[in-house]
Design a binder for these strands. Structure first.
Length: 281
DNA sequence: ATTATATCCTGATCGC
DNA sequence: TGCGATCAGGATATAA
């Protein structure tokens, strides 16, 4: 389940492989995927690969006579994976990859290798946009300078949802999913059941710091691998060893020794320590 | 207008 | 052994 750190990891890795390379062809192997605009990408050059929200975006420069850039966005949703393979993929390569990751949903053939898109549950999407603005989600990216405690406070202040559910809202902050929402609230020692709008200025500063530090640290460790995430090399991330609450119900809280619990909020599991996170409501 | 819920998918797991 | 039910959760369409 790729969230911001996992998508960032994949985008960085792919960028190092395909920056400056030429796209030879894009093949869609799943009729559920829209092929709109994809033909335009043939012979385009990859300017860079970057993360935009939770999307992996290939910034493309079109061959003459076209002008300007084109944006190929892949959203991995729940189970999407992008796996890089050097050189021309052989029949044996495909067989091996399919055994590991399932059916190929799409493939991007470049002049130095191939990006395979696997996606067990097929929630992921591919789309082409003619402008960068069209890609931008409405929420603010928590790893940009625009994300300040003041801004966070303003966003939170009218929130009538519980804090945990609020953190998952991509129209407010982009990139946080179910794993990091729990981790962030634990780090900030905040009650997941609190009304978002009830958080004080002091608490907002703690939350702001927790958002940035948890996400940054997770990127440093190459993301979290639970069941579905693997990087573009097909390897696991390492942050799962540093998770404090997620999937740790029944274990001891590393901060206060309390027992971590799991509870559903709006249909999604939340992991938290009742002893050090429920002090304020 | 804002928030809650159903939906999309498939494989793993569980109780009977 | 097998079968149906449940769970996992990102984002969106639809309902409340």
């Amino acid at each position: 389940m790729p969230e911001l750190p996992e998508v960032e990891t994949i985008a960085q890795q792919l960028n190092s492989k395909v920056c400056g390379r030429k796209i030879r062809q894009i093949r869609l192997r799943d009729p559920k995927l829209s092929g709109r605009g994809l033909a335009l990408c043939t012979s385009a050059k990859v300017v860079r690969v970057e993360r935009v929200g939770k999307q992996v975006v290939f910034v493309l420069k079109l061959p003459p006579p076209f002008k300007g850039e084109l944006y190929l966005s892949i959203h991995l949703r729940m189970t999407g994976r992008l796996i890089w393979q050097d050189g021309e993929p052989s029949r044996a390569d495909r067989v091996e990859l399919t055994e590991r990751f399932g059916k190929v949903r799409a493939e991007l053939l470049l002049d130095n290798g191939c990006v395979f898109f696997f996606d067990l549950r097929r929630f992921g999407t591919i789309r082409i946009e003619p402008s960068y603005e069209a890609l931008l989600p409405s929420g603010i990216d928590p790893l940009t300078a625009a994300f300040t405690p003041k801004r966070l406070f303003e966003l939170l202040k009218d929130g009538r949802q519980n804090l945990k559910t609020w953190l998952l809202r991509q129209d407010k902050l982009v990139g946080i999913g179910n794993i990091y929402a729990s981790e962030i609230l634990h780090k900030a020692a905040l009650n997941p059941f609190r009304l978002a709008g009830s958080v004080t200025a002091k608490e907002v500063r703690r939350l702001h710091h927790a958002v940035q530090s948890v996400l940054t640290r997770a990127i440093e460790y190459g993301g979290t691998s639970f069941s579905d995430f693997m990087d573009s090399e097909g390897k696991n991330g390492n942050y799962q060893g540093y998770l404090r609450v997620y999937q740790r119900s029944g274990e001891r809280c590393g901060r206060c020794g309390g027992t971590i619990e799991r509870e559903k909020q709006n249909g999604r599991s939340t992991f938290y320590c009742p002893q050090c996170q429920l002090l304020h409501r």
